[in-house]
Structures are given as C-alpha cells and as structure tokens.
Design a protein around this nucleic acid. Structure first.
Lengths: 218, 218
DNA sequence: GTCTATACAATGATAGAC
DNA sequence: GTCTATCATTGTATAGAC
C-alpha cells in the first residue's frame, strides 16, 4: 500500500468523504467503478472524472493506470490474507489440528465479504483474477507465500498424505473458491432456474467446506 | 461457426496450408497467436500480418475483431462439447448410470486436449475464460445448454440428492475444472517446488476425478 | 509538491476507391 | 474482395501554472 499521507491540505476541512486527498480519491473511485462495471469498461478518463481530478493525476500519483490498479489489488489482498492468517493461527492450536478448521480459514473470509461493507473490495479482487491487467494476474500467479502456510498446516493435519497430494488438492480447492465472480453465480442461477444463489452466506460457506473437505477425505 | 465455404479461389492451388482462403487464415492466425501470447498482446495488426492479409480484412470477413474471436471460441467449444456428449451418452447406458462415468465425460476431453494436436485450441479456450473480451465471457456465462444434460444425468445417477444439491456440486466441479490455465499450473508448480505438474494426463485425470467424485460422495 | 492543459502514439473500426 | 486513408478513443508523457 503506497498511499502514505492521505491527509494533506484536506485535513483542515470538515468534510469527510468528498474532501480527501486526490490520491485516495483516485484509489476509491477506481475500486468502486471497476467493482461495478469491470476492468475493460473503466478508462483513465472515467476514473479521474469520478474522483474529480485531472486526467494526469493517475500518472502523477501512481506512475500509470496499471500501477494504481495493482496498488488497489495488493491493499485488498493483504487485508483478506490478514484475516485468513488470524483464523489459521486459531485453527493450529489443536493437536493434531482439524483439517476442516484449516480449510475454513481459507474459505470463510472471502465468503463473508460477499455481503459486507467489503463487498466492493471483494468484487474488485474477483474481477482482477479474470479481467485484470497482465501485471495483476502475474502477481496472483507468482506470489504464493500466503498459500505455503496452508500447505504446512494441512501437512500437520493430514500426516498420511504426502506433500504432492496436499498441494494438488489445495490447487483444486482454490479452483472451487475462485469460481466466485458475479458471472459465475449468474451462470449458476441460470443453470438451476434460480434455485441456487449465494445469498445465504452461512449456507454457502457450509456447502463450500463440505465439498472441499470431502476432496481431502476429511 | 460461420466460416462456410473456406475453399474459394484457393481450391485451384496445390499448396495446402499456406494458400487457404483469407477468412480461414485469419481464424488460424488469431487462434495460434492468442494461444501463444494471450488476448491482450495480440492486436488486429498482428493477426492480419501473420495471416498475410490487409488490416481491414478482419472487419470485412467477421465484422469486428471481437466477432472473429467469438467465432473461434464457439467453434472450439462446440468441438469440445461434442466429445463430451459422446462420452455422456455412453455413460448413460448403465441403470442406474455411474456418477463417476458422468463426471469423466465432463472432465476427460479437456484433460486429453492438453498434450494433443488440440493443445492450441484448448489454450485459446482457457485464455478466453479469463482474458477474453466481455462478449465471449457473456457467452460462457449465458449458454448453459450443454451443462443441463449433465445435471439431468447426475439426477439419474444420484437420486438421493435433490436438484439444488446437484447443481451446487456441479458448480464447484466446474471451478475445479476451469482452474486450468497455464498461469494456474505455473502457480501450482511454484507452490509445490516443481513437484506437481500436469504432464501425466492420465494421472491428472485420475486426480481430478477423485477430487470431484468425492465432492459428490461418489 | 500538486495540479492543469495539451500533445502523442497506438488501437479497433469504417467509408469509399478500385 | 481488397486496400488506402481516416476516425474516435485509449493510456501516457510533459511543460508550465500555482
């Protein structure tokens, strides 16, 4: 997260949301617009217009449009993974730890964000995975640090499975978890004639956990 | 597939590959370039240069760049779903049919295409899902006809599960199946320190089937 | 340091000559 | 059917005002 001092001269103003620094306004405008309309539909001119700043502001504050989007992605992904790490730590107090609790630490945070104040952030993250610029997708592809912790935890919880087995099944689980965009759910609703919707967060979390845990034989 | 008569005046020539109609040359050039370098890296000027035709040929033959890409997608997806339908029919002769055979009909064709002559087509399809233009992703989202056959088959094979259960688990299975791009496998290799690769098609198919069938309790 | 106005190269699309 | 020329829109870069 590169947005260091967001106060600036706006600190003297009493207005809260509308009168932030231009840099943070760009951050929030881009996140909201892209969460709602998608990466391809949002141009630099859209973003700067919504933020109420000049076209050149993106380049001045972030260097490029892609760098702005990457900053948004990294910020929100870090927040998500922080929540996961907290739950994972709690799951590891058992001896041996419960595989279901470990998988829950992976799955619960994004599932709860669906109908949260974090809904916009989650939509941005989901869209980034499929529609985002190559630089973001490269970062998703290459940064696996947060996943290594889950591999290690699952090795402890499932000592009868070797490392390759665990990584394969985690790979499959991530497929399930990431099949999560608005388009994916629209397809699900269509296929089920409206029977299946992600509205009930707890029920969705339960279904996800059941399916993935079954894949681990747990 | 809109490429009706691909012969044209080239039919009188003895040369096979290089001297096809401009329309088919555009089709193959675009498919190959995008399979290798991705949707974003390939411009109309790249495609027409590789096909040896004028820049305006895409618009003349297909109406737009997106229409060309959509045509490639529909053609290859239809071929893939034809293979699936054949396997599904064979799986349905049993009474009751085997859920594993039904899931195999869904999973086997794309898995075998990985190291086939169809490798390029599969890469195009996989990239289309994540990098493709909005029109292609809308078609993926809205066309579920081929999936309805699988829902019906699984209802027969698993009569103790209601329709909603089946559709949810099919949705999760599609997540597993679509987590299949070059980037996904690169991430898998990175996370496993090179331990897990999709090289052995039969082993991969077995792993996929085991994981997904477990999710159906089968 | 921050912001504005403006210019620039590249893209997909298209009209019209041949 | 094919090609040339041209168009609007995109992300980016920079000069200069405050």
């Amino acid at each position: 997260m590169t947005m260091g001092n967001i106060a600036g001269h706006a600190a003297r103003s009493g207005d809260a949301a509308a009168d932030q620094g231009a840099k943070k306004r760009l951050f929030l405008a881009a996140e909201t617009l892209i969460a709602e309309e998608g990466f391809e539909a949002v141009s630099s001119r859209n973003i700067t217009a919504r933020a109420g700043v000049n076209l050149a502001a993106i380049n001045y504050h972030y260097g490029s449009k892609t760098a702005l989007l990457l900053d948004i992605f990294q910020t929100r992904a870090a927040e998500l993974n922080r929540e996961r790490t907290t739950l994972l730590r709690a799951a590891l107090v058992g001896e041996p730890p419960s595989p279901r609790a470990i998988l829950r630490a992976l799955i619960e945070p994004p599932t709860l964000w669906i109908s949260d104040a974090r809904r916009t952030a989650l939509r941005f993250l989901n869209r980034a995975r499929s529609e985002g610029p190559a630089e973001i997708r490269a970062m998703i592809r290459d940064d696996v640090r947060h996943l290594r912790r889950f591999v290690e935890a699952l090795e402890q919880a499932l000592p009868h499975l070797d490392r390759a087995e665990i990584v394969w099944r985690l790979h499959f689980s991530l497929g399930v978890l990431h099949h999560n965009s608005a388009a994916d759910y629209q397809r699900l609703a269509l296929l089920s004639d409206g029977l299946c919707t992600p509205e009930d967060r707890e029920a969705l979390l339960g279904r996800l956990l059941d399916f993935v845990a079954a894949g681990f034989g747990a």
